[in-house]
């Protein structure tokens, strides 16, 4: 693989609280290459959004990056402050959030918001920027883009609004897009449209996409590789087909088994007992061991092994060789 667009090494985010220091992201490393969609999947509290926010410098204090490095296009960005980070956002990294309504300014016309962003990041004249704005809206599939630039956000439907947000993220031609649950607030049919759009943009422009979601189905359809997170740690990383069909970490396996599937009929769903531990009461050893059917004494004592550079499962006894403990 050539130089990755985004490279995260041993990223750790800390939040100091009265109960002690919490680590919502703990020693996470992954790369995203050009034109690649990396799905980051996990349940709520896994730290998947926090990792995305750390990359784009949007951690809300007191959360802070305690350790690790983030490189975008080879340049280290985790130590950038204020203005430099702001310039980078939009220019190098675009962001798409879950709720399209809150990521648009309700008082400004769509076109003005796009033009502002373009002018802030690209060396264009105002008229060129306006042209570029129409082009961006056209690209994300908004019909009648030339007229719609004069509309306000509330005049768009939910799905169209999310398209506008994507246009906004794309208009300065960033090399990386972080999409945090971009379809969670949308209906199934609109979700399919947005995913198709993301895939198409990624392919046509070679943009790297970090797709954060809890929906395994979305990951399966959209992602090239998948990173599974649990309690702040990366537990499995690999090509999407491999990870989803033959998961090696028991958590990924449990997650797949919990998802209702047509082929499984009406049998009882496989369930992972318990719930994700709270960050202030993480168990000793591997954080998943209390819920893991394969846990051995070693899992209770030693923290799970780190993922090697690249791929695999962070597990002492990865599937399919682990044996179930009665």
């Amino acid at each position: 693989m050539s130089e990755p667009i985004l490279s995260i090494r041993n990223l750790t985010v800390e939040i100091p609280t009265r109960q002690g220091i919490l680590r919502p992201v703990n020693g996470v490393s992954y790369d995203i290459g050009r034109g690649e969609i990396l799905g980051v999947v996990g349940e709520s509290g896994a730290g998947k959004s926090m990792a995305g926010n750390a990359v784009i410098g949007l951690l809300s204090p007191p959360a802070r990056i305690a350790e690790g490095e983030i490189h975008v296009n080879g340049a280290r960005i985790d130590q950038l402050k204020g203005d430099a980070m702001r310039r980078l956002r939009g220019k190098e990294i675009g962001m798409v959030f879950q709720d399209p309504l809150t990521s648009l300014n309700p008082l400004l016309r769509i076109g003005d918001q796009l033009t502002e962003t373009i002018l802030a990041h690209l060396p264009l004249s105002r008229s060129q920027a306006e042209e570029r704005a129409v082009q961006a809206l056209d690209e994300v599939g908004i019909p009648g883009a030339a007229e719609r630039v004069n509309s306000y956000p509330h005049e768009f439907s939910g799905g169209m609004r999310q398209r506008v947000v994507i246009a906004l993220a794309l208009c300065a031609e960033p090399s990386l897009i972080i999409a945090d649950e971009p379809t969670t607030a949308l209906d199934v049919s609109v979700q399919a449209q947005i995913i198709a759009l993301l895939k198409q943009l990624c392919r046509n422009r070679g943009t790297a996409v970090m797709l954060i979601t809890h929906d395994m189905g979305v990951i399966a359809e959209a992602a090239d590789r998948v990173a599974v997170m649990y309690a702040g740690k990366l537990v499995e990383l690999g090509p999407v087909r491999e990870v989803l069909t033959t998961p090696r970490h028991p958590y990924t396996d449990g997650l797949m088994g919990s998802t209702p599937l047509a082929s499984r009929g009406k049998d009882r769903l496989h369930q992972i007992p318990g719930a994700m531990p709270r960050l202030d009461s993480l168990p000793q050893g591997c954080a998943f061991h209390p819920r893991c059917p394969y846990a051995q004494a070693q899992c209770k004592a030693d923290p799970a092994p780190k993922l090697n550079e690249g791929e695999g499962a962070a597990c002492w006894f990865p599937l399919p060789h682990a044996t179930k403990v009665a």
Partner: peptide, 17 residues
């Protein structure tokens, strides 16, 4: 049904609704 994401179909390419 066509639009719903499917676990088994990796990189499925369908014309969106």
């Amino acid at each position: 049904l066509a639009a719903a994401p499917k676990l088994g179909e990796f990189g499925r390419e369908v014309p969106p609704p």
